[in-house]
Computed example of a mutant assay.
Amino acid sequence: MTIRSEPDRSRRDPGLDAIVRERRHLINLAYRLLGSLAEAEDAVQETCTRWYAMSRRERDAIESPGAWLTTVAGRVCLNLLGSARVRRETYVGEWIPEPLPDGTAADPADRVTLDESVGMAFLVVLESLTPAERVAFVLHDVFCHPFADVAEIVGRTPAACRQLASSARRRIRAARPSPAAPAGRSAGVVRDFKRAWEAKDIGALIALLDPDATAVADGGGLAATFPRPIEGAEQVARAWVELAHRRPGTTVLLERTVNGQPGLVARQDGAVVTVFAFDVAFDVAGDRIKRIWVIRNPDKLRHWGAVP
Rank of each mutant, 00 (worst) to 15 (best):
T2K: 15
I3H: 12
D13N: 10
G15L: 12
G15C: 07
A18N: 09
I27V: 14
L29E: 07
L33P: 13
L33A: 10
L37W: 08
E41R: 15
D42G: 09
A43R: 05
W51V: 10
W51H: 04
M54V: 00
S55C: 08
R56N: 04
R57F: 09
D60F: 11
I62G: 01
E63K: 09
T71I: 07
T71R: 14
A73C: 10
N79F: 03
N79C: 01
L80S: 10
R87Q: 12
R88F: 07
E89K: 14
E98A: 10
P99Q: 00
A105V: 05
D107V: 02
D110T: 11
A121G: 06
V124E: 13
T130I: 09
A132G: 02
E133W: 13
R134T: 04
A136F: 04
D141R: 06
V142F: 06
P146K: 00
F147A: 00
A148Q: 04
A148V: 09
D149K: 07
E152W: 02
V154A: 12
A159L: 06
A159T: 02
A160T: 10
C161T: 09
R162H: 11
R169P: 11
I172C: 06
R173E: 13
P179E: 11
A181Y: 08
G184I: 06
G188L: 10
V189T: 03
V190P: 06
R191K: 09
K194M: 02
R195V: 04
W197V: 00
W197K: 02
W197R: 01
W197Y: 03
A199R: 14
A204R: 07
A207P: 07
L208N: 04
L209N: 01
L209T: 00
L209R: 01
D212L: 14
G219W: 05
G221W: 10
A223H: 04
A223V: 13
A224G: 01
P227K: 04
I230K: 05
G232T: 02
G232Y: 07
G232Q: 05
E234Q: 15
A237C: 09
R238L: 13
W240L: 12
H245C: 02
R246T: 01
R246W: 03
R247K: 05
T250M: 09
V252W: 01
L254V: 07
P262L: 06
R267P: 03
G270Y: 12
V273Q: 15
F276V: 11
A281T: 14
A281W: 13
A281N: 08
R291Q: 01
I292Q: 10
V294A: 08
N297I: 15
N297C: 13
D299S: 01
H303Y: 03
W304H: 02
G305S: 09
V307M: 05
